[in-house]
Amino acid sequence: MSSVELMNISTPYSLKNINLKVRDGELLVLLGPTGAGKTTMLNVIAGLENYSGSVLFDGVPIDGIPTGRRNVGYLFQDLNLFPHLNVFWNIAFGLKMQGLNKTEIQDKVDKMLHLLKIEPLRDRFPKNLSGGEKQRVALARALINLPCILLLDEPMSSLDYRTSKYLRTELRMLQKKLGITTVYVTHNLYEAEEMADRIAVIDKGRLEQIGSPEDVFFHPQETVSSFIGAPNILNCEYCRLLNPSLMEVECGGISLIIPNEGKQVRKLAILPEDIYISAAKPPGPNINRVKGILMKVDESTHTVCCTVLAGENYLRAELPKEIFKTMGLDIGGEVWLILNLRKLKVANK
């Protein structure tokens, strides 16, 4: 496959002097808010956007090469399936435009249908497909020519959580199996953390931070924190294995249960928006429920951030202002927190 390098890339209305290298075979996630310039960057790589600077594949400038000859697969956010073509011919469309004969088209499409596990959809039309099925067909079409670079623009944005989670797992396995250098756009931090080898955070057309998911989550730069939120960081002093998949950790006087991967846990992180706060003890099993004292309340236009002393930890919980006003929470009063197990992130170093 190929590495991709952007050197001093600027566009008239969006990107501002971007320098970025995507390693050969890497899945790099572009993370940023709406309007940050993520899609524009994909379009630059694909040759669909006017720009200054240089784009290099494997160290070779490709600025004068048109889109059709860059060997890039592109899965657009709106998928763009042809409603009048069935699944087979949607996938085969690019091959037909290249003038391949029917036997070659048949062979290539059959292999792609098998790879994406969508053989039963072969003769269906887009109107008869679910969201996840449409996503697989669009991905098959992007992969049919075995591109050296795969560009994915918010590929899961229209799907429900369960379907999105399943397809992300499949896509990650497929990307590693094929070894295709991939640039994946999302505005969802957890999706980025789950998918990426590295995350590049972009905001207002500028590249603000690039690093491993752990680096970005546990050590966000100030400009990045304003977008993803500054996480609560807990130092772990003690770990106890409960079973092959769960571990109990002690962090500054509070006990938490976390998913276990068999490694020593050094730190935990969780965003304020992923901590539930209430005046009364929440119902349900007593897992990751901690009691504390409300120390501070900071109000913004739409949200309230509550700082709670739990054990030796000052934890911030964020909630909508209208909900806070109905809860009757008082500074100095006792509160309960629930730390969402699925949202706790682990650092092993």
Rank of each mutant, 00 (worst) to 15 (best):
V4I: 15
N8S: 15
I9E: 08
Y13I: 09
V22C: 11
G25N: 09
T34M: 11
K38H: 07
T40G: 01
N43R: 15
I45P: 02
A46S: 10
G47N: 11
P61R: 12
R70A: 07
N71R: 12
L79S: 00
F82E: 10
P83E: 14
V87L: 04
F88M: 10
N90P: 09
G94R: 02
N101Y: 05
T103A: 13
T103P: 00
K108Q: 13
M112F: 14
L113M: 13
L115V: 01
L121I: 09
Q135P: 01
Q135I: 02
L143C: 09
P147L: 11
D153K: 08
D153I: 07
M156Y: 12
S157F: 05
R168E: 02
R168D: 03
T169N: 05
L171W: 08
Q175T: 04
K177A: 10
T182G: 02
V183T: 05
Y184E: 02
H187R: 12
E191V: 00
A196G: 11
V201E: 09
D203T: 01
R206E: 15
R206I: 13
L207Q: 10
L207V: 03
E208T: 00
Q209I: 01
I210W: 10
G211K: 12
P213T: 08
E214I: 15
D215Y: 11
F217D: 02
V224W: 05
S225I: 07
N232L: 07
N235A: 09
N235Y: 05
R240C: 06
N243Y: 11
E248F: 05
G253Q: 11
I257P: 03
E261Y: 13
A269E: 08
P272C: 11
P272M: 13
S278N: 13
K281Y: 12
P283D: 15
V290C: 04
V290N: 06
G292N: 13
G292K: 07
L294W: 10
D298V: 13
N313M: 12
N313D: 13
L319A: 05
P320K: 06
I323W: 11
K325D: 03
M327G: 05
G328N: 10
I331V: 15
G333S: 14
L337Q: 11
I338S: 14
N340M: 10
N340P: 04
L341G: 02
L341C: 02
A347F: 07
